[in-house]
Design a protein around this nucleic acid. Sequence first.
DNA 1: GCCAACGTTGGC
DNA 2: GCCAACGTTGGC
Length: 218
Amino acid sequence: MRRSTRQPATAKPTAVADKAAASTTAKPRENGNAVAPDLGTATGEDGERNYWLLKAEPESRFENGVDVRFSIDDLAAKTEPEPWDAGIRAYAARNNLRAMKKGDLAFFYHSNCKEPGIVGTMEIVQEHSPDLSAHDPDAPYYDPKSKPSDPKWSVVHVKFRSKFAAQIGLKELRELGGPGRPLENMQMLKQSRLSVSKVNAAEWEYLSGVAEARASEK
DNA sequence: GCCAACGTTGGC
DNA sequence: GCCAACGTTGGC
């Protein structure tokens, strides 16, 4: 996935709002997500919380003349809710974005880099709104097919929550994803090209435990 | 920089 | 609406 910091943090949902939003958000929440562990702050009105995994590239790469590099440290330095993501241009990823609720938590994954892996966590602080950067010819992920009257793409706003003492690398994730293992059904391992994927509550808790254990080893 | 996997597009 | 061709992702 790609992201850009170019979209102003002040971007707001407009009255136009995503037309498909109603249908995507109307779908039932994941049944697999039982009671959320007490790991965050606000939860949605229904008391449930969903979990996600979002990819960004921590190393420089130019898209339409713009460096799309964005790491967990870049997010940690932000003082305002950060729009994520000006670069999601695949429907499966977008639909996951649109299903996110305020208070949901997400892993931050470093992709397309020397040491890919999960490096920390963030919280969804504002639900989806149209990705207006898609209409900007100078934006890294300009999409001439998206019309301002009917925006195709979406962003959510996130805030930094934590950076792991040591990342959980892709190699380890794959080992944990073997038959009968804790991450056997993890979406990011099954659909490795998806830049926004679902994480179920058991996977979230398991990986949070791995991250904690890693911190105490240090 | 190679290329496998897989999502998207467009001809029919 | 099938599916071959094409484009992109992202690990290596």
